[in-house]
């Protein structure tokens, strides 16, 4: 029991950190076509994410790997049920990753346009689809005891799923514009600030819709009313979101991004904690739902994984933090690698 709960908490942390970090890349990639048409500015945009996107994406790989290792049955049923949307996300992420490395390797507008397009699609689709997928998981997925899925990709795009998708997209876009605000100077930074201000209002509106809609579409809030101390999670998320606005109007550069990161982390965790002890609930047969108890690995494997996590996760956080600090400088025309 104990080890399953530990891995449930870690599982949530991995997804939350992934969204908190890759969120700004995905959001900025989505915003790029609207932020600038000019090549140097676009290159600055690429370079603002350049040293980080890859390290950020590894959190996704780790989240996937941890699902496989700690809850293999959930991994199997979740990934095969969500076959088409998941592969769509993966293809999109492939295009995005390659866009970074290839765009500036050849001269020629056509070449660059192709990769700009790839960056946009490769950022927009995952941002939206991760939201849709998680909202659908919150609602429950139509699968039976044999692990057979009885839905289709259109059913995933139900109203609640779409609200979740749009919420993810908006908050990532805000997160991205705040990163750009922090990483650049002059006109581009100002543009990013004004976009972030506008997006903040939309994020707030959709956050409220999503929180209230969840009361009707999901059972997420049940855990909160049964264990009121959990309300601290959505509370931190909401307070952080308000602080984003406060620090934006104080013209701070880094703090708005930091608090938007906290918003994403705790908003994700709000949903994860609401699921407990489910990982992948079934909407058609509650007894088919995959929980941390009926889908986990053995105690031995969970203990081994815990030891690995205890050793390596702090080290990873240490050097990623160091790398973020090392490359936290403002990106200008002078330091363009991509």
């Amino acid at each position: 029991m104990f080890w399953q709960v530990i891995w449930f908490i870690l599982w949530g942390v991995l997804w939350a950190v992934y969204f908190m970090l890759d969120g700004f890349d995905l959001g900025l990639g989505t915003l790029m076509p609207f932020l600038s048409k000019e090549d140097t500015e676009r290159r600055i945009l690429y370079n603002a994410m350049g040293p980080f996107w890859d390290g950020n994406e590894v959190w996704l790989i780790t989240a996937g790997g941890a699902t496989f290792a700690a809850f293999p049955k959930t991994y199997a049923v979740m990934f095969s049920s969500l076959y088409s949307p998941l592969l769509l996300i993966l293809f999109a992420l492939i295009l995005r990753g390659v866009a970074f490395e290839y765009r500036s390797k050849l001269e020629g507008d056509g070449w660059k346009k192709i990769w700009d397009c790839c960056l946009f699609i490769g950022s927009f689709l995952p941002a939206l689809l991760f939201g849709v997928a998680f909202a659908n998981i919150f609602e429950g997925i139509p699968f039976d005891k044999a692990g057979m899925y009885h839905g289709n990709i259109l059913k995933l795009l139900n109203p609640y799923g779409l609200v979740g998708g749009i919420f993810f997209l908006l908050i990532f876009m805000m997160h991205g514009s705040l990163w750009l605000r922090f990483k650049t100077e002059g006109e581009l930074s100002e543009k990013a600030k004004s976009i972030a201000n506008k997006l903040w209002v939309l994020v707030l509106v959709f956050a409220l819709i999503f929180l209230i809609y969840s009361k009707f579409a999901t059972k997420l809030w049940d855990n909160y009313f049964n264990h009121p101390f959990l309300f601290i999670l959505p509370l931190i998320a909401v307070v952080s979101l308000i602080l984003v606005k406060v620090y934006l109007s104080k013209d701070e550069k880094f703090k708005p991004w930091l608090f938007s990161a906290l918003t994403i982390f705790f908003a994700t965790y709000w949903g994860v904690a609401g699921l407990f002890p489910d990982l992948f609930p079934s909407s058609i047969d509650p007894s088919a739902s995959l929980t941390i108890y009926n889908s986990s690995s053995t105690k031995l494997t969970l203990i081994i994984m815990t030891v690995v996590a205890l050793i390596f996760v702090p080290v990873v956080i240490g050097y990623q933090f160091w790398a973020y600090k090392k490359f936290s400088h403002v990106v200008t025309k002078e330091d363009l690698e991509y």
């Binding site: 350049g50 040293p51 980080f52 890859d54 390290g55 994406e57 590894v58 790989i61 780790t62 790997g65 941890a66 496989f68 290792a69 700690a70 293999p72 049955k73 991994y75 199997a76 690995s297 053995t298 494997t301 081994i304 994984m305 690995v308 996590a309 390596f312 996760v313 990873v316 050097y319 990623q320 790398a323 090392k326 490359f327």
Partner: peptide, 25 residues
């Protein structure tokens, strides 16, 4: 998954983070 999954997860945690971060560095 009980055996195989953990190996992939360890790869990501122990090696892949290090590789991606320091390639960029």
């Amino acid at each position: 998954g009980d055996v195989f999954g953990s190996l992939l997860a360890i790869e990501a945690t122990a090696a892949f983070f290090l590789e991606s971060t320091f390639v960029a560095v």
